[in-house]
Design a protein around this nucleic acid. Structure first.
Lengths: 263, 263
DNA sequence: ATTCCATGCTCCCCGCCGCACGACACCAAA
DNA sequence: TTTGGTGTCGTGCGGCGGGGAGCATGGAAT
């Protein structure tokens, strides 16, 4: 195995596991402990991992948040935040707003907590938590009502399944912010999880207006399951990194394309 | 287990439970009390948790009004644990089990996590979290399926309301463990929260068998809203502190009264 | 054939962890 | 309030396991 391939494997493993021990890596890679240590030393200089006693972890204070999640949420913080701020501007007092599960919608939720009193409907436990005790920790109670849609839990902390879709059929939302894993002119808005796609479709059906929030990296990605065609979205909010191609295609398909500026 | 992984688990647990005790963490992580204390000390310097007597809590949380209050309120005394162990013995592989929200059912959930693979239906976010995260952090995934019933969130972390009751109407449970705030020969099983009582009634209706878990302090307490009459319970599990009066009254009303011994 | 370099090995050092004891905080009863 | 009891916290020491430096080996490039 080439050193470069080994390094890549180590980085991948660290990103996946958050923390790995030298001995495990050595066994997995079929090399000695010393080699792994030296690799980690190199990777640390490149800032790709952080060395700790007995192994390596992903760099930065990534350990401060929760499994697998913060990795994505810190990937493009500026862009996501900009999108969130832009999206939050669409929300007014008293509205019934839907938030699908995802890192972008989570960033949006962080903005909405600071905003006017609204009713939030979500299938993300994390987002519900944010409103629930995000409120109490900030001292002044946040008046917003949060309805958490039930169901079974996916690895990404979304609640999905027949319970969730049935609950959504009873509800009618003014506005839905949908986070997606991919958007593509052919496949439309997609997610890799079949059950989550079904729940997202129920979300879409329950809402009068669909706003997709997606940073530019989502363009061109096709998840396994389609949530909706591009044309079904009333608005798409993305960031300045979006390619000209994408802007053109989205501009033709959706009613309005907003580009959030990171300023 | 690596220190970093341990820290991560501690932070996750604190975020999930709001407060944890050193001894529980030590047991869960398989390390000594001293190690946990040292970890918490480090994490406190990083501002990720806040140290309190006997454990840790999430930082800056408005959960505390009086010093040292939190631990007491969330620890489960021997009685609750004994009840939980007794109740857990009724659960077998593959069953569909309902758990209402409450501290006693939460204690029960902690036992069930260690037990056979089952399907759990609950309206408590904390119980759902317990199964979800408890699994990943303990290394070996817990095979149980957890369905979280949706709705609006009460201060006690229960999800209630029409969404919740509608979801329960679709489900049929083998067994329901119901936690109550009070039980009384006249008022029956009660809770102070009207919405929660409604959801609990839906729980009762969805289940073939009703088991009420309640420590002896609940006897004689009348909450504002009645969930069910004493006669509706198939079993009641309480602890040795239950008065003779209570034992007689319950013995006449329910099919079976179990007293959990704290041994 | 020679040089270079990545790898593995070994010894020694150091940080981490657990145990035991004394000090202290919290709670409860008077 | 004071007093007693229980459980928690902090420190010192010893053991253990991982980290680091230097050297030997083997393969590849020159």
């Amino acid at each position: 195995m080439l050193p470069a391939a080994r390094h890549q494997t180590i980085v991948d493993t660290v990103q996946r596991e958050r923390v790995v021990r030298v001995s495990d890596l050595a066994q997995q890679l079929g090399v000695s402990l010393m080699t792994v240590r030296r690799d980690i030393e190199l990777l640390e200089e490149g800032g790709q991992v952080e060395r700790i006693h007995g192994g390596a972890k992903l760099p930065g204070g990534a350990t401060t948040h929760e499994p697998g999640f913060e990795l994505k949420s810190t990937q493009f913080p500026a862009e996501k935040r900009a999108i969130a701020v832009e999206a939050a501007g669409m929300v007014h007092e008293g509205m019934a707003v839907g938030l699908s599960a995802g890192t972008t919608t989570w960033a949006l939720a962080q903005e909405l907590v600071k905003g006017p009193r609204i009713t939030v409907v979500t299938n993300s436990v994390r987002i519900a938590d944010l409103f629930h005790h995000g409120a109490s920790s900030s001292g002044v109670p946040h008046g917003s009502t949060v309805i958490l849609i039930g169901g079974e839990r996916t690895p990404s902390d979304a609640l999905v399944g027949p319970i969730a879709t049935a609950a959504l059929k009873q509800l009618h939302l003014d506005l839905l912010f949908l986070g997606v894993h991919g958007m593509d002119p052919d496949a439309g808005f997609t997610t890799p999880n079949l059950l989550e796609a079904e729940t997202d479709r129920a979300f879409v059906a329950a809402s009068r207006k669909l706003v997709v929030v997606a940073d530019h990296t989502k363009w061109g990605t096709q998840g396994m399951s389609t949530i909706a065609a591009l044309e079904e979205a009333d608005e798409v909010i993305s960031d300045a990194g979006l390619s000209a191609d994408a802007r053109r295609a989205l501009g033709e398909s959706v009613s309005r394309l907003r580009i959030a500026s990171s300023s």
